[in-house]
């Protein structure tokens, strides 16, 4: 009598073999579909930016970037980021310290408030500041008295950018600090450290990669903000145009190569951001945290 166990196990192996062959096909079909989708929606746009930028040759490319209005736009973009990112950094650290290291009621409301800019259209973000500081705004008389201009000037751009990008660092740090818990900080306290010592010696080294990524991302969003800044800036060439706005102007003038040239700088920034993210993830995985 044939050994029933051997027979069935062979059949099982056969079944498994057929299954895995089918599985192999399914696998590659799925991978193919996913890659096609990503190619169409992600890779292509990225590639096209550089392709169009270099359409008229590298000299035109460099000239578009060196052009005075473009230079002014780049300068304004850098200035805006230089103000917005540090401020949002302080906010991010403060908010995540309060939220991650302490237990109190109302945390959910706080978290929702921090998430708010994500749910609000950028145009509305800009609109809010126009309503506050614009010609008919709530603070208009006060501003006129001191001859300060916020909307249609640099301060307005900075404010709108701060609003739209302040969640990024906080949202990066909060889950990170929550996952790390409070024991190390408590231990430091028991050993006699004061608040600043605890933060700089114990907490900061543990969050440094997440912090780096948060700052880089916040920076990328700050430099690339379009909708909100568009509302607030007044589009005055050479004065209140950031890089994204400059791109828009060039594009609307059908000056495509120039538009894409400036855009390519922003695309490069995006790529750097993604690379930093990859490095951060690799580093945190390696540490085994």
């Amino acid at each position: 009598m044939a050994n029933p166990i051997l027979v069935s196990s062979r059949r099982q192996t056969e079944v498994v073999n057929v299954a895995s062959k089918k599985e192999g096909i399914v696998r590659w079909v799925l991978i193919g579909m996913a890659l096609l989708f990503l190619l169409l929606f992600l890779v292509l746009p990225l590639v096209i930016v550089f392709y169009e930028a270099l359409q008229d040759g590298i000299e035109m490319y460099l000239a578009s970037i060196a052009e005075p209005d473009a230079q002014a736009a780049i300068a304004l973009t850098l200035l805006t980021a230089a103000i917005a990112v540090p401020l949002n950094l302080v906010f991010g650290v403060a908010a995540s310290w309060a939220i991650a290291k302490f237990e109190f009621r109302g945390k959910n409301i706080l978290l929702t408030l921090i998430d708010l800019p994500f749910a609000v259209s950028p145009v509305i973000s800009g609109l809010m500041f126009v309503l506050l500081f614009g010609m008919e705004g709530m603070f208009a008389p006060w501003l006129e008295a001191y001859n300060m201009k916020i909307v249609f000037a640099v301060p307005g751009i900075v404010l709108a950018t701060i609003f739209v990008t302040f969640p990024f660092i906080a949202r990066e740090l909060i889950p990170l600090m929550q996952a790390q818990g409070t024991e190390e900080e408590e231990a430091a306290r028991m050993l006699g450290a004061n608040g600043w010592q605890i933060f700089f010696r114990v907490t900061l080294p543990n969050i440094k990669w997440g912090l780096l990524y948060g700052v880089i991302l916040c920076n990328a969003r700050a430099m690339g903000e379009f909708g909100a800044v568009s509302v607030v800036s007044g589009h005055i060439r050479g004065l209140t145009n950031t890089m994204p706005l400059h791109v828009e102007i060039l594009y609307n003038e059908y000056n495509f190569a120039a538009a894409f040239s400036v855009a390519s700088l922003l695309a490069l920034l995006a790529i750097v951001t993604l690379v930093v993210k990859g490095v951060v993830e690799w580093r945190t995985a390696r540490r085994g945290h």
Partner: peptide, 21 residues
């Protein structure tokens, strides 16, 4: 890593790129 591109890329750049395509 690329999946995060829409997050990091400025919307205006995405806009003109998609139009071009």
């Amino acid at each position: 890593g690329l999946v995060d591109l829409p997050f990091a890329l400025p919307t205006a750049v995405a806009g003109i790129a998609l139009t071009a395509i």
